[in-house]
Amino acid sequence: MAMADRRRINGPTGATVPPVFLEQTLALTAPRRAPDELRKIFLKTSLTPPATGSAFLELSAPSTLKLTASVYGPRPLPPSAGFSPHARLSAELKFAPFSTAGNRRGYVRDALERDLSTQLQVALARSVKTATYPKSGIDVFVTVLDCEGSIDDYNTLGIMQALAGAITCASAAIADAGIECVDLVSAGIAAAVGEQGSLVMDPSPLDGYDVKAAALVGYMAGRDEITLLWTKGELNIEGGDFESVVDKAVEVATQIRTVLNEAVKERVLAVGGVNS
């Protein structure tokens, strides 16, 4: 009886056809979400052991937004730094080289990433009780692992969604680090689309909308306070379009806040509750 040759893997005897993946095609042909329907969010904390606090955020299909946030501190400032009665909060947002469609991103931060890092820092700064940690530094690092669409154009929804996700994810990581805050910060986006300027909540670049204007807000729901406002496109302030789009973005941030609350609550319960 002949023995099988175990040193090699024999190929099929007949012809084969390479598989064709239709995920992108199915995403484009799938029924569009309702204008007031938000995508599902997965948010989990404590996934980076070396960091003081960390979080991971992912939006549901057909979105491709995935990002992580890590927080280090509060830790003492170097001796060369001057005395500071408040903690120094720094934030850095970086796109992974493989995160965007088209050309790979560089390893060194470019002008876009530096600008987004500044906006991320502004959105988070008002929520942290910096006076509680004098002569200390708090460092926040956000890495975008997968971004919605291309970011070659600065004014794309993909960039706005990346910043919105970074704000929410970083706020969860700060809470996971046990840093005292006055409130949590969630971010939401709304847009006016089409010739009629219909309002859409949580628009995605993959939805195929003709976006005329969009607004991103960082929002502390408990204090009813906006920490960041970024608008895109033409908004008629006198006609009330500006207020309508911003109000819708605040509504999106308020709904996302419930996911943020659950993620933080899950972490608190996992460590045995809050010390009285």
Score class of each variant (00 low, 15 high):
residue 144 V to S: 04
residue 239 G to I: 12
residue 126 R to D: 07
residue 9 I to Q: 03
residue 220 M to P: 04
residue 84 S to H: 06
residue 26 L to Q: 14
residue 163 L to V: 07
residue 228 L to P: 13
residue 217 V to C: 09
residue 33 R to D: 00
residue 131 A to S: 14
residue 238 E to M: 02
residue 120 L to G: 05
residue 133 Y to S: 10
residue 61 A to H: 12
residue 4 A to Q: 04
residue 276 S to P: 13
residue 172 A to R: 02
residue 12 P to F: 13
residue 13 T to R: 06
residue 267 R to H: 11
residue 62 P to L: 07
residue 256 I to D: 06
residue 48 T to P: 12
residue 259 V to R: 06
residue 257 R to Y: 00
residue 91 A to I: 08
residue 66 K to L: 13
residue 164 A to G: 13
residue 56 F to H: 08
residue 269 L to Y: 11
residue 196 Q to M: 11
residue 101 A to S: 02
residue 224 D to K: 14
residue 63 S to I: 11
residue 254 T to F: 10
residue 163 L to R: 04
residue 244 S to Q: 06
residue 195 E to H: 00
residue 136 S to G: 10
residue 233 G to K: 03
residue 131 A to R: 10
residue 165 G to I: 07
residue 113 E to K: 00
residue 138 I to R: 06
residue 43 L to S: 08
residue 214 A to G: 04
residue 258 T to W: 01
residue 184 L to W: 02
residue 134 P to D: 05
residue 272 G to W: 01
residue 132 T to I: 09
residue 162 A to C: 15
residue 31 P to Q: 10
residue 223 R to A: 15
residue 167 I to E: 04
residue 231 T to S: 09
residue 134 P to Q: 01
residue 276 S to N: 11
residue 139 D to M: 11
residue 51 A to F: 13
residue 164 A to W: 02
residue 78 P to T: 02
residue 42 F to V: 11
residue 184 L to C: 03
residue 53 G to N: 09
residue 209 Y to D: 10
residue 148 E to V: 09
residue 7 R to P: 14
residue 125 A to T: 15
residue 59 L to R: 12
residue 39 R to Q: 05
residue 163 L to D: 03
residue 75 R to E: 10
residue 76 P to M: 00
residue 38 L to W: 01
residue 48 T to W: 15
residue 180 E to F: 00
residue 226 I to N: 10
residue 264 V to I: 14
residue 167 I to G: 03
residue 262 E to H: 15
residue 115 D to T: 15
residue 158 G to M: 09
residue 195 E to R: 02
residue 169 C to V: 05
residue 73 G to L: 07
residue 222 G to A: 03
residue 176 D to R: 00
residue 235 L to Y: 09
residue 12 P to T: 11
residue 92 E to F: 00
residue 256 I to V: 12
residue 110 D to M: 10
residue 207 D to H: 04
residue 129 K to T: 09
residue 211 V to T: 05
residue 149 G to R: 12
residue 120 L to W: 00
residue 132 T to C: 08
residue 158 G to W: 05
residue 80 S to I: 04
residue 190 A to P: 13
residue 129 K to Y: 08
residue 271 V to K: 03
residue 100 T to S: 12
residue 187 A to H: 07
residue 219 Y to E: 11
residue 213 A to P: 05
residue 192 A to F: 06
residue 143 T to M: 14
residue 79 P to H: 01
residue 111 A to W: 00
residue 117 S to Q: 09
residue 273 G to N: 05
residue 1 M to E: 05
residue 199 L to N: 03
residue 85 P to Q: 09
residue 196 Q to P: 04
residue 18 P to H: 03
residue 259 V to D: 08
residue 185 V to P: 13
residue 121 Q to C: 12
residue 187 A to I: 12
residue 105 R to D: 01
residue 130 T to A: 14
residue 146 D to N: 14
residue 123 A to H: 05
residue 258 T to S: 10
residue 22 L to S: 09
residue 96 A to D: 10
residue 77 L to T: 00
residue 90 S to E: 01
residue 23 E to R: 14
residue 24 Q to M: 13
residue 89 L to Q: 02
residue 275 N to W: 10
residue 30 A to H: 06
residue 208 G to R: 01
residue 173 A to N: 03
residue 268 V to Q: 08
residue 100 T to D: 01
residue 191 A to N: 02
residue 98 F to C: 11
residue 195 E to G: 04
residue 73 G to D: 06
residue 202 D to H: 02
residue 148 E to Y: 11
